[in-house]
Design a binder for these strands. Sequence first.
DNA 1: GCCGTTTTCGGCCCGACTGTTTTCAGTCG
Length: 563
Amino acid sequence: MDSQSRPAEKPSNGDVARIFERIADVLEIQGENPYKIKAYRNAVDTLRSLDEPVWQVAEDDRLDSIPGFGDAIRAKIGDILLTGTTNLYDRVKDAVPEGVIEILNLPGIGGKTVKQLYDTLNIVSIEALEKALDEGKIAAVKGMGEKTADKIRQSIERGRRYAAGVRLNQGVDIAGNIIHNLADCPHLTQLTVAGEVRRGCDFIGVIDIVGAATDFAAALDAFTTLNQVDKIVERGDKHARCVLHSGAAVELTLSDPADFAMLLFLKTGSQAHVARVTEMAKLTKLPSDEADIYAAAGLPSIPATLRENTGEIEAAQTGKLPPLITIDDIRGDVHAHTTATDGDFSIQEMAVAAKALGYEYMAITDHSHSLAMVGGLTPDRLRAQMAEIRALGDSLGIRIFAGSEVDIKADGSLDFDDDLLAELDFVIASSHLYNNQSRDAQTKRMIKAIENPHVDLIAHPTGRIILRRDPYAVDIDALIAAAARTGTALEINAAPARLDLKDSYARRAAQAGVKIMINTDAHRIVEYDLMHYGITTAQRAWLTPADVVNTLPLAEFEAWLKR
DNA sequence: GCCGTTTTCGGCCCGACTGTTTTCAGTCG
């Protein structure tokens, strides 16, 4: 954004967040006060999770009501809303080459390392870093060695693997944004999302959008000249693929209005699904919607989330498509945090918001004391919180379960003793620490937690953070077998960065008779809305309401807890 | 940079792990 000009439209929360993120990155490389950096990163998180436009908050003079926005950050937000930039950003944005920021964003490499590489070897890009690695220069830097060099090499490899895509929520947002920006294009009569985003994949390689157009060239021009487009990778008569400034790849494919249903079908399912259905379909006329195509193949319509050729065609042929779970089946979200640990809202606020969503019950499940960085609850603090929840009773019109997200210790024992666990209504066990054990050790450790009779649910069982961290080494089938044996539920964590269990694992778990819970792990009220990502993953896992414990009415859910 | 029943300065961000050290720095959750 040009620093001199007034922004044409109001900067979005994401625009403001990006500026603060860059400020934080540069300050980190410059070795600034870590608390200052943290303050900017906090502001980034706050902006991205705000459920209304920051310009609206500013216009209403309510910025000072947002925790973490002090004098300095409020003033900078004001500058950015007015001019599109702020002095500090202008000063720092060119202080460090772009490639250095890219290195900082590689998992496993922090500000200190980046600065040292920049200062001592003038490494300003990932390519330069790789060259220095190959020449043995990195291992020779003071304070580094062969193992550090290896770690950096792995980081680059992982970063490259992760760079080629976006998370589902990002795919949904980007597609929505592009469709919105092309809504006024007179050459397009229809426009909708297809491909991996429509199928609800956890990881999106290419964001596919399909359109019906009256003038292909003009419609593609409108697409390729959008503000967010960085470069055009490919352009044909009826399609164009672009890379956006954000790095995401987007492809727009067009057809005549009459062929749109076929295009949508072709661009939605996996290649194998589309190929098989196409071969089966005996079309005698142009399909007016996708149902016509499936009907011509002698099949009922197959939901987009199932179109992977993993048995859905056979199921459709034999009338055995599962009655997939929908968001309306969910009766409670039983994984939520409060200000007692790393959440942003009180017990009451979280409960009232859950009630407003129509839930019959919810659970407060703050972290346990081993997770020191978030101020995990000590036994005394947990008992105090439990008393607070019990005192609330049914006064808020929603059943609040007193729970805990207990950390699993290195040896598989839990962070609270059995007496305390027995006092709780609901116990989640999850692993945030000690995750780099061998596959065997990690599997044994997780199974030990599953076997604890107080544990109702294992949250985010593989620990992956999509595009950031691989799942830890664990024998998932052994965990599934243990959960089936003990009656312990496994979670589909709906946070789009997790979606853990992933679809294929959740499907195997359900087939083995394991009960699933779908939870948002909300740290803020707005995060309750992430439930639909968990539902999409559950659909991809072929789950029905009967597979998912938190579809049960309150009384039955309580009975399940006492199983 | 934020925050305040410790209120305009001085805490805040703790503990484990790793790799390079031989007493500690960097990174992460």
